[in-house]
Simulated assay, not measured.
Amino acid sequence: MSQTALAASVPAPTVQPATGRPASVRGVGLCLLSAVAFGLAALFGKQCFAAGFSVSSMLAARFGIAALVFWLIVGIRRPALPGPRLLLSCLALGGVGYAVQAACYFSALTRIDASLVGQILYVYPAMVMVLGLALRRETASRRKFAALGCSIAGLGLLLGYAGSNGPVAPAGALLAFCSAIAYALYITAANGLPEDFDVYLLSALVCSSAAVSVAAFGLTTGSLRLPAQPTGWLWLLPIALVSSVISIGCFLAGLRLVGASTAAILSCLEPVVTAASAIVVFGDRFNAGQVAGAAVVLAAVILLRPAAGTRPVSS
């Protein structure tokens, strides 16, 4: 969500995605790597909050560090700069779309159980598919609907069996649902950008505008709060580098190769990673329902693998 994976070319058999572009092993791999990196964000975020970060201060620092890394890469690559209209679109993508999605997601984490946040958030692949069909960017297929069905059923098992303790705060559930809506709109909008737009430049613009937007909100509302414990800054680095630089860069690169709805479905690996990392870090246990859910989610990934007999892609 390493960066060399973005430039690696892996010629492989492909299927034809909804947008008419061949889907490659590289595109699927990038989306899965993004999901792994994103799946660790909840754990890193909770550690930041425990150390004293507020949501707005953590997000502003997270996006600021990620933007700096992306701008360093842009400075080395020196891609062509976008025109004014495209530039404004990219800034809106980060300053509105991604900033709102992240703010809603991490705010929900402070109010309700992380598994419930994930369960609500992952209605977004269905939203992406509906938006793609409505905009005529996607075409329906049995394999895609089967994969979507597996992802929904698997997530229901995985996160439903995880459960949450005590009553559910309505505000937390609403924030998680708003996060799903914002993410679906963000993915759909990003998928409409020109194919030759440099991924690193796009990521730099998205993270920069998101950092400014969140910081401005924090200053206006007085919600910026830095951690009292030095360990908070240590937890900030992985959420910025792993769950931002790697996750955002890989997702935007993979999105172009496999299309919006496929990328969204592949991203359903994220809550599986979150649950598995909780087992390793916090000693949580998987029950039988969660094991079954993880297997069904992974079945969606298998359904979306490139099929044999189609033309390879090179880049």
Rank of each mutant, 00 (worst) to 15 (best):
A180Q: 00
I76L: 08
T19R: 08
C268Q: 04
G20F: 00
L255V: 04
Y200S: 04
S244F: 08
L298T: 05
A240F: 09
C31V: 07
L91A: 05
I187W: 05
L93T: 06
L159S: 05
V168T: 12
A263L: 00
W235K: 12
A176C: 12
P84T: 02
P22S: 03
P125N: 09
L109E: 00
K144M: 14
P170L: 14
L116F: 06
G75A: 10
A189T: 02
Y105I: 01
A41P: 11
I187C: 03
V281N: 10
P13S: 15
G45E: 08
E138P: 04
S277V: 15
C90D: 12
A114W: 10
F177S: 07
A300H: 13
P306T: 11
A299K: 01
S209N: 05
R85L: 10
A292K: 12
P306L: 11
P84M: 08
S24C: 04
V168M: 14
F44V: 13
R78W: 14
S243M: 02
A180I: 01
F70P: 00
S115Y: 13
L185N: 02
T110G: 15
S209F: 04
S89V: 12
G259K: 10
L252Y: 03
G289W: 08
A60K: 01
F177A: 10
L236N: 04
V28Y: 01
V199M: 14
I152M: 09
S315P: 06
R62G: 10
G283P: 12
G83P: 04
A108I: 03
V242M: 10
Y98W: 08
L121S: 14
V212E: 03
A189G: 05
A42D: 02
A5V: 07
F38L: 12
P125C: 07
